[in-house]
């Protein structure tokens, strides 16, 4: 397999080399023949080809230098986090770190849930049902990063009993939806699942 591959590639390489070489010889011959009335066309073609190939080479060389700043393999592989939620009391929030960002896990009270469910969707800047934002209505799991400019909102604050971002005054409700202020969208919901009744796996 690998030997045949090697042979194949070698043949292709030789072919290309042969083509290039014959091009050189032919062009030299042609150049000698028609040195006087050398057509501008061919010359321009050569220069254009040089520029084009050169540009592609520069672009190809630039890519690794750009790509190296993207998240690397070890970052991408960062593990999922499992959180034990058995010790969270009613109406309490814990914050855990996942992929360098805070994740709010709140066990909501019944009032909060009904408040969140009974909001008229027309009032919302980013309309979304509460049911769509939770897997179990008691547990609200969301990324604690304000969708405005990335600050961490404070809990139990603001005009809507939810969260309040101190940086630029965005108010979120008990479902983490934006109600007032500059933030454009609701707080994000990360990918998560209930492993069992007491454990959430984020990621």
């Amino acid at each position: 397999m690998s030997i045949s591959y090697t042979i194949l590639v070698t043949i292709i390489a030789l072919l290309i080399l042969f083509l290039c070489l014959s091009w050189v010889f032919v062009s030299i011959k042609v150049a000698n023949k028609e040195q006087k009335e050398e057509t501008a066309e061919r010359r321009y073609f050569l220069y254009t080809a040089s520029y084009a190939l050169g540009a592609v080479a520069v672009g190809a060389a630039a890519w690794p230098l750009i790509d190296q700043m993207n998240p690397d393999a070890s970052v991408k592989a960062l593990a999922t986090t499992e959180v034990d939620i058995s010790s969270i009391g009613l109406g309490k929030t814990i914050t855990v770190l996942w992929r360098g960002k805070p994740i709010f896990i709140r066990r909501r009270t019944q009032e909060e849930i009904s408040e969140a469910q009974n909001v008229n969707l027309n009032e919302l800047k980013d309309p979304q049902k509460d049911e769509d934002r939770v897997k179990k209505s008691e547990w609200l799991v969301m990324t604690g990063v304000c969708t405005h400019l990335g600050c961490v909102p404070l809990g139990n604050k603001g005009d809507f009993g939810g969260w309040f971002c101190p940086c630029h005054g965005s108010h979120y409700d008990t479902s983490g939806r934006i109600r007032k202020g500059p933030a454009p969208t609701n707080l994000e919901i990360p990918k998560y699942e209930f492993v069992d009744n007491n454990t959430i796996k984020i990621g």
């Binding site: 790509d67 190296q68 690397d72 393999a73």
Partner: peptide, 13 residues
Amino acid sequence: EHIMRDVNYGWLI
């Protein structure tokens, strides 16, 4: 070694 193994094109650079 992290550059060589994990960083995108780190080995090349």
